[in-house]
Design a protein around this nucleic acid. Structure first.
Lengths: 165, 165
DNA sequence: TGCTGATAATCAGTATTACTGACGATCTCA
DNA sequence: TGAGATCGTCAGTAATACTGATTATCAGCA
């Protein structure tokens, strides 16, 4: 009953993915996220940044200087991982650990002038990568995808916050 | 100009994610994939499996026994990673490395009777986890999400195959 | 037929990543 | 003032994926 093995027919070098695999949401999500990371990291490599670094910078541009763990809770980054993460950006001169005005244990992570300068360009590169990544989709689907994922992520974020009480 | 830092207002334990972050496709995809993995792995842990293991088993149930690297090309798993990957399943008695009928270098990875037995149950657990993961979405959105991601993944898969020539 | 270059699986070593647990300093609150 | 929680840090650990080398085998060509 064990089916026969096919090897090296005139097959094109792209190995077909059967539907049983393509219909598994886990495969689709992981594969998409992985590919997205590839595209983004390639675009940002010249600046020594990853998508997560840019995400951090955008976050503090929007919300103002934040303690590391606050950032971590938004971005789902562990407190210990945040250390190295901020180290990277500080080494690049893009953010600074300032003294937190209300809490001497905490740092206030701030954008430096250089960081404020670079961020728009980094964002632009990131957006270009995103467009490239989504280029196979009709524009309506791109918006839809964002909308659905946003809802999903928000739901899980709130749920986790609730049960963390 | 640097904005003021907020710490411990009467905030609920869930830290709000600002829209600048929530609108970044990379964040949404990575976060979704990560959460999905969590949910799935929790469901499959009693059997010592991950979603990828189940994916492998489904693939060879569908396509028949395959060499390791063929599996890897479908699932985007490196040839060296496949070794440990198949080791896992073999240790659990779910697949077997048989001799490949046409190529003595290659293995033919086959489901064992035990593997064929367990697979439906594992799939069921995986599907339940997927439902749980998607529970925040209206059914129409679940289908839409699958459709869009499938298109996206397929596009990149074909594109990579093409430029690998 | 025999040789050359490619390929399958494996292994050792490496880099990356994230996490656990412990620490000192500091905060909060009773 | 004292107890317990919290912030950032670090050392150690585990998981993961990859590079390069190795062995066995294959495919094609002279």
């Amino acid at each position: 009953m064990t089916p026969i093995i096919k090897l090296k027919q005139g097959m094109p070098p792209g190995h077909e993915i059967p539907n049983v695999v393509l219909d598994r949401m886990g495969f689709l999500l992981n594969r998409s996220a992985q590919k997205f990371r590839e595209v983004t990291e390639e675009a940002l490599r010249p600046h020594g940044l990853t998508g997560k670094h840019v995400g951090l910078m955008v976050l503090i541009r929007e919300r103002g200087a934040l303690p590391q763990q606050e950032i971590g809770k938004c971005l789902h980054v562990d407190r210990t991982t945040m250390v190295a993460f901020v180290d990277d950006l500080e080494r690049l001169g893009l953010v600074e650990r300032k003294a937190h005005p209300d809490d001497r244990r905490a740092h206030a992570i701030e954008l430096t002038p250089k960081g404020k300068d670079l961020l728009p360009k980094a964002l632009q590169l990131g957006m270009a990568a995103e467009r490239k990544f989504l280029s196979a989709l009709p524009p309506a689907d791109r918006k839809t995808l964002g909308r659905i994922l946003k809802r999903l992520v928000l739901h899980h974020h709130l749920q986790e916050a609730q049960q963390a009480r």
